[in-house]
């Protein structure tokens, strides 16, 4: 099967890769662009570990084909601390011990960032429902919710 040429903007950089039409965006990020921060936990859009921003919208990259993203703008976890300075969410996740094994963490961070861009002051319930598509099996979510609340408060203060 012939591969297709794809040009996209990933974390601000223009990238090119060859994708088999059957490969997902997640496959392409991980295998062709060596961006392994996005994880595959299910491959069916049920766990959120592969969350990325595609043209400004939060999507599961396992449910997007690589070939669909020609011309698209993509942001992944690797683009969250571009100059090395952590995003407030990243700092608060560490401070609040909002991760144990850390496998779901990139997906949570990308999803939580999308939430705070849309809603800078979410309630606990809004955080929980927004993040319902991000499974975490270690933490019971308590510390994750607190980290998002704290990051939101800090970002509101800074704004």
């Amino acid at each position: 099967m012939s591969k297709m040429h794809v040009t996209a903007t990933v974390n601000g950089d223009e990238v090119e890769f060859l994708a088999d039409p059957r490969e997902t965006l997640l496959d392409c990020l991980r295998d062709h662009l060596d961006l392994t921060g996005s994880k595959e936990g299910c491959g069916t859009g049920d766990c959120g570990a592969c969350s990325v921003m595609l043209n400004g919208r939060l999507v599961p990259s396992c449910l997007v084909l690589g070939v669909e993203t020609d011309g698209a703008t993509i942001e992944t976890i690797e683009g969250m601390a571009p100059e090395g300075a952590l995003h407030p969410l990243q700092r608060k996740f560490i401070e609040h011990a909002a991760l144990q094994c850390g496998f779901c963490t990139p997906g949570f961070l990308v999803a939580a960032k999308a939430l705070l861009e849309k809603n800078p002051d979410p309630s606990e319930s809004e955080i929980r429902y927004w993040l319902a598509g991000n499974l975490c099996r270690c933490t019971g979510y308590d510390k994750i919710v607190r980290a998002v609340q704290d990051a939101a408060a800090e970002m509101r203060g800074a704004a």
Binding site: G45, D46, G48, S51, L54, R57, L58, V59, P60, L63, V64, A111, A114, L115, W130, L131, A132, G133, N134
Partner: peptide, 9 residues
């Protein structure tokens, strides 16, 4: 239908 992420698709 699905999660916030799936809602994007």
């Amino acid at each position: 239908v699905g999660s916030t992420q799936v809602q994007g698709r």
